[in-house]
Every structure is written in C-alpha cells, then in structure tokens.
C-alpha cells in the first residue's frame, strides 16, 4: 500500500503543475541522460527495432532464459551472450570493457533509471567466442521466431479490435 502511494506521488506532482497553468520544471528534469560508451555492430542491426528493444528487451531476455534453462532451446537471437557480443566496447588497447562497467551499455542507462540488473553476477560480461547470430544454421533453425512473431502480430491485432 505504501509502495503504491509512493508510486503515485510523481503523478500527483504532475497534476499540480498542470493546474498552475504555467509549466514548472518537473523534479529531476535538469538531469541529463548519460551517454554510454556504447557500441553497435556496423554490419548487424539489433534483433528487433531499437524502440521495441528499449521498451521490451527484458521480456525477450526473460523468455529466452526460461526456454534455454528449462527446455534446452538454444536459439541465438535473444541469447544474452549475443547482447554482450555486440554491445561491449573496446578500450584504447583494444581490450573489451565489461558490459556492466558504470559507463557501459547496460549500466549507464540502468543506473540512470535506478533499476538493478541481476544478470552479471553469473553471466559473462565480455565476448568470449564469436557471435553465431548471423550464421546460416542459426537463421535456419529460427522457426520459433516466426511463431513468436505471429503471436505478437495476433495479440497486436486483437488489441486493436477491442
């Protein structure tokens, strides 16, 4: 209950500022979004549109996690290892910087949003072996991918229908 109230507090603040007519700056709005030492592969687009990944990357990773651990499904498209392979940056000497370092891809944003990541206590933080994301066998076996796209499309259209 208390947690709910706390969650609602920012909403209350916005409501007030609307009433006042003149827009007051929201709390913390002077904070600038941190620019991570990010890295995207030049040849490889992300596995979903960037907007989709920004919003829902955790769902893809969570789904893949259960599929892999419990059912032995080893498709690469949403494997955390491939995220790390692609998004780790190299330092001046060409060494990979751990992806969970403060200014790197995952943590720069997560610390800004104050969301703790629970991945890298266990998972590797640097590329260890080459990516298999674009290999023919990885693509050829991705029929679950087609299915899950269909499901997503279905859900989206049902959502519109209602």
């Amino acid at each position: 209950m208390l947690a709910l109230l706390l969650l609602l507090l920012p909403l209350a603040a916005t409501a007030d500022s609307d009433k006042d007519g003149e827009k007051e700056a929201l709390p913390f709005s002077d904070l600038t979004f941190p620019e991570p030492a990010r890295h995207y592969s030049a040849e490889q687009k992300c596995v979903q549109p960037v907007e989709e990944m920004r919003k829902n990357h955790m769902n893809y990773i969570l789904h893949q996690r259960d599929e892999t651990v419990h059912r032995g499904i080893r498709t690469r498209r949403y494997a955390l290892e491939e995220c790390v392979n692609c998004h780790t940056a190299q330092d001046d000497k060409g060494e990979y910087v751990p992806i969970n370092a403060p200014d790197q891809f995952c943590y720069s944003c997560h610390s800004y949003a104050s969301v703790k990541i629970d991945c890298f206590q266990c998972h590797a933080t640097k590329p260890v072996r080459p990516s298999t994301l674009n290999t023919p066998e990885a693509d050829a076996t991705d029929s679950t991918e087609k299915l899950s796209n269909d499901i997503r499309q279905l859900l989206a259209s049902e959502g519109q229908a209602q």
Binding site: K146, L147, D150, I151, Q153, L154, S157, E158, Q160, A161
Partner: peptide
C-alpha cells in the same frame, strides 16, 4: 471495428496453420 477483427481472424488462421506445420 469489423475490419480489424477480420484482420485478427486472418492472423489467427495464419498462426494456426504455421503452428500446425511446426
């Protein structure tokens, strides 16, 4: 409304067909 539900139906049929194949 009916247009989009038709769409949904098409998508569902499509999905079921592919699921069946799989």
């Amino acid at each position: 409304m009916s247009e989009s539900s038709k769409l949904a139906d098409a998508a569902r049929r499509n999905f079921l067909a592919r699921a069946g194949v799989a």
